[in-house]
Design a protein around this nucleic acid. Sequence first.
DNA 1: CTCCATTGGTCTGATTCCAGACTTTTAGAA
DNA 2: TTCTAAAAGTCTGGAATCAGACCAATGGAG
Lengths: 241, 241
Amino acid sequence: MMTESPLVSLLRPVRSGNAFEETVERLLQAIKLGVVAHGAKMPPERELAAQLGISRVTLREAIRALQESGYLDVRRGRYGGAFVVYQPPDPRHGDLRRAVNEMGPSELDDALTFRMAVECGAAQVLADRDLTPTQIATLRRRLSDVNEAGPSDYRRLDTAFHLCIAELTGSPLLAAACADARLRVTDLLNAIPILSFNIQHSADQHAAIVEAILNRDPDRARQAVAEHLEGTAALLRGFLA
Amino acid sequence: MMTESPLVSLLRPVRSGNAFEETVERLLQAIKLGVVAHGAKMPPERELAAQLGISRVTLREAIRALQESGYLDVRRGRYGGAFVVYQPPDPRHGDLRRAVNEMGPSELDDALTFRMAVECGAAQVLADRDLTPTQIATLRRRLSDVNEAGPSDYRRLDTAFHLCIAELTGSPLLAAACADARLRVTDLLNAIPILSFNIQHSADQHAAIVEAILNRDPDRARQAVAEHLEGTAALLRGFLA
DNA sequence: CTCCATTGGTCTGATTCCAGACTTTTAGAA
DNA sequence: TTCTAAAAGTCTGGAATCAGACCAATGGAG
């Protein structure tokens, strides 16, 4: 039988839209996520433009926008560059509700579902592999990094831990998907107060994830990630409207 | 600790490159995948351009390229449009080896890993949900469609079945990711001869996937999908060099 | 102090891509 | 037959983006 269906997912947008805006967004996320830490320097313009696949002109416009918004400090000359001048503010009461409602229920649901699928998938895939000693060391290192993190570094190292799992699979596509998923919830996560109780809970879950992966147990890895993400997801959904 | 890492996945390309080429590729995939079946009409230019997020001019260039390559027949006037004039040729001996080696080992591995992660993730997520009767009916329908398919429709309906799982999660991001994953292996799948033995085997696996989802058993759903995809993946990897 | 490598800053011409108005063709309805 | 609606085809001016050459500042090496 035919069952005519639009399969609309295949005829989706070819390009995300405006290169300038996309770039601003991307850089902003890199800053907010702490990929480039406070006080650190972004890569040189020429290099960064190449990485992002855009022209230097467009990149510079984006950088200037971020400079004018107070995220970057740009200095010229040798050893100059664009330095991150931004520290995530401590979330204040009401920030979370505001952030959740700015996003809208369907977009939030989309992002959470997507994140759940790709991060569980990544963990499962990784747990199905023999890891090299180096990979094991990296994973363990990321785990201990986040466990020893102070409040100001917590989000950043938590992100690094999560993305590390996807990157260790060796699939750039999968790593990009997980990064994208994370980006879509960054603002929300940044609006959640960091409580030591939650940190401890997360630490246990992170440890369970790593253990399942190292034990080559895909089901447990999947479950551990699902459980970990479900906590955050439930919290966020609870703030809807 | 800091553990400085590039986290290169965040500073990946903002745009995929050339809008024209991207569009050609996308349309070609829609044709090869049978999203728009042989003899059927593509959506009108204006509508399609809007869906793809590009201008009509660019779309028309892409359509013309496909017309000149013999994939489309464009007719004007009312009830006109771009009609698909293409039937996937039966794969011939050596096609598969050629296709695999054209792609290169790292890209192949990337695609297979990505597909494994997102499709397993989608199935897992869906199996964790209460489905509406309509959704259940859709899933069952897609299953029977592919089971009853003739050789000429098999790939098309197989694609529809796989994507259906992602689309039923209600997450456009996840659906897009699965569609993307499928696109990256289309040429390879099309080069695999369709053997009735394989079809039967796949049918059993498809049934197992649906059953696990309907029984709300995420672990089994995940495993069923993993097993199903692993078969194809192993076959393809076997053809490397 | 001088030089120079490295980095941001600027300019120009070309190319791509777009939005939208207008034209032509066609099949069916009246 | 004539009219009409829906579709492809065409044209134009402008905005976005790019590639690449060149300028200017700056901090360290010698």
